[in-house]
Computed example of a mutant assay.
Amino acid sequence: MTDLVCDLERDFPICHLRVRGTLGYATAPELRAAILKVLTDQPDVILVDVSGLDVEDDITLTAFAALVRQGGAAGVSVVLHGAPPALAAQLDTMAVTREVPTFATREEALAAHARRPAPTRAQIDLAPDLDATAGARHLVDRCCALWGVGEVADDAALIVTELVANAVQHARTSCTVTVTLRERYLHLAVRDGSPRPPRRVTADSDLESGRGMLIVEGIAIAWGVVDTLGGKVVWATLRPRRGR
């Protein structure tokens, strides 16, 4: 089998992704796209079943480490389970297991996840009007106060204002704002109904139209855009000084 098939089973807040086929230079982007799409749902953890995975070139296994780092920036754990002996040896040889939590079975992965503190989450749906940014700021301010991370409240409010303003002005659709506090990160995500990427300042653009994303880049420790069915999610992450 030379193709890579990624089957998703959603059991929110846990997502199960079964990867079957051959991982190689040609198919690694399919793995990345599948996990990035799952990240937009902001699950607590993505359990990746690799029991049916073959590897064309060992170096492509480092894609899992990159995805774990991306998941960490988004506040979502990514773990592997079910690797047969040959694959487990390859993961160890490439030092992937130093960064990627790996378990023998799905049950062991679930048990390890159950021992971790659950995240705190809040969400609001907003219409594409001038009141949207105020509603988003109110949600963020309230969450930061309730969750004891007031030290990042101003930065979080500024980021969410820019993300929602981008959705209102350029996507021109309703949007959903999700605020999630995990062990080390405060994660902000805005989902809208337009596939167009957020406006950014470029050499041939005016400063005002793209200044919002410059602000986000300057404040967040990480941010990104993931395409979804019928739209996109723009997310950004902050690290509270005190943690949880």
Score class of each variant (00 low, 15 high):
residue 2 T to F: 03
residue 13 P to N: 02
residue 13 P to C: 06
residue 13 P to F: 02
residue 16 H to W: 13
residue 19 V to M: 08
residue 23 L to T: 09
residue 25 Y to L: 12
residue 26 A to K: 09
residue 28 A to G: 03
residue 29 P to F: 10
residue 31 L to G: 09
residue 32 R to C: 03
residue 42 Q to I: 03
residue 42 Q to H: 05
residue 46 I to V: 15
residue 57 D to S: 10
residue 57 D to T: 10
residue 64 F to P: 06
residue 66 A to M: 11
residue 78 V to D: 08
residue 79 V to D: 00
residue 79 V to I: 03
residue 82 G to V: 12
residue 90 Q to M: 15
residue 93 T to S: 12
residue 103 F to D: 05
residue 106 R to C: 12
residue 115 R to C: 00
residue 120 T to Q: 14
residue 123 Q to N: 03
residue 124 I to R: 12
residue 125 D to K: 06
residue 127 A to R: 15
residue 127 A to E: 14
residue 129 D to A: 09
residue 130 L to N: 04
residue 136 A to W: 00
residue 138 H to W: 03
residue 143 C to Q: 10
residue 144 C to H: 03
residue 158 L to D: 06
residue 159 I to T: 02
residue 160 V to T: 15
residue 163 L to H: 05
residue 164 V to F: 06
residue 170 H to V: 07
residue 178 T to V: 15
residue 178 T to H: 02
residue 185 Y to I: 08
residue 200 R to T: 09
residue 200 R to F: 02
residue 201 V to C: 05
residue 205 S to K: 06
residue 207 L to A: 07
residue 208 E to A: 14
residue 212 G to C: 05
residue 214 L to C: 02
residue 214 L to T: 14
residue 217 E to G: 12
residue 217 E to V: 00
residue 221 I to T: 12
residue 222 A to V: 02
residue 223 W to Q: 07
residue 231 G to W: 11
residue 242 R to S: 14
